[in-house]
Design a protein around this nucleic acid. Structure first.
Lengths: 336, 336
DNA sequence: GAAGTTTTTGCACGGCTGTGCAAAGCTGTT
DNA sequence: AACAGCTTTGCACAGCCGTGCAAAAACTTC
C-alpha cells in the first residue's frame, strides 16, 4: 500500500536473514559449489521468504556468457515465421537459453537497431530471420565474440553462419513435376520483395525451364503474401496467355493464387491448373487447399541453430548449411 | 584467427583510448548529462573504433529499470498469437523496451519457469499470453515491483492487470445473428482446452440460447485448432441432429468446420449452414472462407499493454480492461 | 586426545556501469 | 587582475554477483 515501489531482494539481504555470509548464498545457487546441507537449507528458506531470485544481469557481468540469444524477425505473424519462432524459442529454452525478440519490421534501419540492442544486452548470439544487416555491423558483432546465424538470408554476406534451404533443387523439382503433369505453360509467381531465397527459387525455376526449352510466365509484383498470389491470378487469367501450372514461391502466395483461380475464374484444380508452393505452412494441409508444396525441416533447422549458438567455439569458421526441403504431395498437382 | 574468443569492449577501454576518464564515457552515452562537445567527439570516435556498446546489463544494476519486458506465450505459430506477438514486439520496441519471449508450451511447469526467468532477468514487467501462472508466483512478481499483465487469462486471479475481450457480448451477438438468419438448430463448437476466454464464450452463448428458449448442440472435444472444427463437423453432420448454424469459439475451429461441412458433406454456406468465428485471423478474410467473425482490436490491446507496462506507478491497483470485439461481416452468415 | 585430511566459510576482489560531490576549467564583468 | 558564475571533469562509491585464497570448522585415523 505504500507509495514506494518494492524492489528486488538481493543476495545480501538473504544472507542477513539466513545469518550467513553472502558467499554462502551465492554458492547455494551455483551448481557444484561447496555448501553444507544445513546452510543450504537456511539460505533456501530465507530466499523463499524474500522471494529472492539470482540476478542474471549481474551474473552476466562475471561469466563470459549471459545466456541471452537475440532473434531478429520482421513478420512473426506470418505462418512460416511463426512456426520458426515457435521452434526456435522452444529449442532455446530446452538448451537453457533465453530469447530476446526484436521486431525489425518497418524501415530498414530497424535491423541495425536490433543488432545494436543485441550488443547492448551482451547476447551470446544473434539469429537473423528477416532483413539484411549491414556488413559493418556484422563485423562488430563477430568482433565482440558474438555468434551470428542468418536464416534464409543473403549467403554472400561474409562472416556469419548461414542456414538455408536448397531452393534450387526445389525449384527444379517443381518445374519437372509440372511438366510431367502435362503442363504446357508454366508460370512463376513471386513478389517484388526480392528476398534472397525467393530470388534463388525464381532463378532456378526459370533456368530449369530454359534447359527444357519451355518459356515461363514470370510474375513479380506486390509486397508479400496472399494478396500477391491473388493479384497474380487475377491478371494472368484475364490475359491472353493463361498458365496451366504455377510455382508460387511461397505457400501464402499459392493460397491466394488458388483462391482466385477457383473462385473468380472457375478453374478446377488440378484438372485445369496445377499449383505448387513452398514452406508447407499449416494452411497448405487444410481441405480447401490440399497444396502440394515443399517442407523445410523446421525442427532440424532450429536444432542446428541452437547447436551453432552453443557451439564450442572450435568451429568458428563460418559455415553454410543447406537443408533439403522434401516435396509434400497433396492434391494441387496431377500425378505424373 | 587466434583461439581466444574476443570479448566485449568496456567503457574503461574506451576512456583510455580517448584519453578521458571513464565517467566522461558514461556521460557521453547518458542523455542529458554534461559533456563538452570536444570530449564527446573523442569518446564517440574511440567507441566506434572499439565497437563499444553500453552494457545494459550493468546499467540495469544501477537504474531501477532494465527495459526488459517478458512475454510468456505457448503457441506463437497460431495465427492469433502470432498477430499478438507481432503487435506487442512492435509497440514495445517503439516504446524503447526489449522483449524476452518465453515459450511456455509443454507441461504446465513451463509457465512457472518462465516467470522465474522473468525475475532472474529483472524484467520490468511480464505479459502472460498463455497458460495460468500459480497465484504464489504472481505474488512474488508483484512483490518484486514487477508489473504483470495477463491477456485473456483467468480474470479471477488477483493482483495483476487483466486484459480481455468482451466475450459475453460477442457470444450473445453471435447467437442473435444466427437466429435472425433463420437458424433453427445452432451449435457451439469448442475445444476441450478450457481456456478461460473460450469458456466465457461457451457459457454466454448457451445462456443466451436458454434465454431465447432454443437448445444448443454443444461440442467440446479435441485439443485445439483446425482439427477440432473438422472433427466436430464430421461427427455432427453424420449424426441425427444436424446443426444449421454454428458459433465456433475460434476462427481456426471455424475454418476446419467449414472445410469439412463443404467438402465432405456438400453443404452450401450460408444457404444450408451459417458459421461465425472469433479472432479475425488473416485466413478468415481469404476467399475460401469469407468468415463472419469478431475482431479483437489487437493494436489497441498491444498499446494498452505497453501503457500498463510503462505505467507511472500511480495506478498500481490492478485493473481489468475489457475490449469490445466488433463483428466483421463477411459471407458465412445470411444477412438477417 | 593429537595430528592429519577434507569440507565449509568468510574476506576481498573483479567485472561494468551511473551519479553525487568537489575540484578544476572557462567566460565574462568590473 | 580579481572575482563571480557556470560548465566540465575526475574521484569514489554503490549496485549485485562469482570465485580464489586462506582461515576455520568438521571429520578421520591412530
Amino acid at each position: 500500500m505504500s507509495g514506494t515501489r518494492k524492489v528486488f531482494a538481493s543476495a545480501k539481504q538473504v544472507a542477513e536473514l539466513a545469518g550467513v555470509s553472502r558467499s554462502a548464498v551465492s554458492r547455494t545457487f551455483t551448481p557444484g559449489a561447496s555448501v553444507s546441507q544445513e546452510t543450504r537449507r537456511r539460505v533456501v528458506e530465507a530466499a523463499e521468504r524474500l522471494g529472492y531470485h539470482v540476478n542474471h544481469l549481474a551474473r552476466g557481468l562475471m561469466r563470459e556468457t549471459t545466456g541471452i540469444v537475440c532473434l531478429a524477425v520482421a513478420d512473426s505473424d506470418t505462418p512460416y515465421q511463426g512456426k520458426m519462432l515457435r521452434a526456435l524459442t522452444q529449442h532455446l529454452r530446452d538448451a537453457g537459453k533465453v530469447a530476446m525478440v526484436f521486431n525489425t519490421s518497418g524501415p530498414a534501419h530497424h535491423v541495425e537497431e536490433a543488432l545494436r540492442q543485441t550488443l547492448n544486452y551482451r547476447a551470446d548470439a544473434t539469429v537473423v530471420l528477416s532483413g539484411t544487416p549491414p556488413q559493418s555491423l556484422i563485423r562488430t558483432c563477430l568482433d565482440n565474440g558474438q555468434r551470428l546465424v542468418l536464416i534464409n538470408r543473403d549467403d554472400r554476406l561474409v562472416g556469419p553462419h548461414n542456414i538455408g534451404n536448397n531452393n534450387a533443387a526445389a525449384a527444379e523439382a517443381a518445374l519437372h513435376v509440372l511438366l510431367r503433369a502435362g503442363c504446357r505453360q508454366p508460370a512463376l509467381v513471386s513478389s517484388a520483395a526480392g528476398t534472397p531465397s525467393l530470388l534463388a527459387r525464381e532463378q532456378a525455376f526459370v533456368a530449369a525451364a530454359a534447359c527444357e526449352g519451355v518459356e515461363v510466365i514470370v510474375w513479380r509484383q506486390g509486397s508479400t503474401g496472399y494478396n500477391v498470389g491473388a493479384d497474380a491470378a487475377r491478371h494472368l487469367f484475364a490475359g491472353r496467355q493463361r498458365p496451366d501450372g504455377a510455382f508460387c514461391v511461397t505457400d501464402l502466395i499459392a493460397c491466394g493464387f488458388l483462391d482466385v483461380a477457383r473462385t473468380e475464374f472457375g478453374l478446377a484444380v488440378p484438372q485445369d491448373l496445377c499449383v505448387i508452393g513452398f514452406d508447407d505452412i499449416e494452411q497448405a494441409g487444410w481441405a480447401s487447399y490440399g497444396l502440394t508444396t515443399f517442407a523445410p525441416p523446421i525442427e532440424r533447422i532450429a536444432a542446428t541453430v541452437v547447436d551453432l549458438v552453443m557451439g564450442s567455439g572450435e568451429n568458428d569458421e563460418n559455415r553454410r548449411i543447406v537443408f533439403d526441403a522434401p516435396m509434400v504431395w497433396r492434391s494441387t498437382v496431377r500425378p505424373g
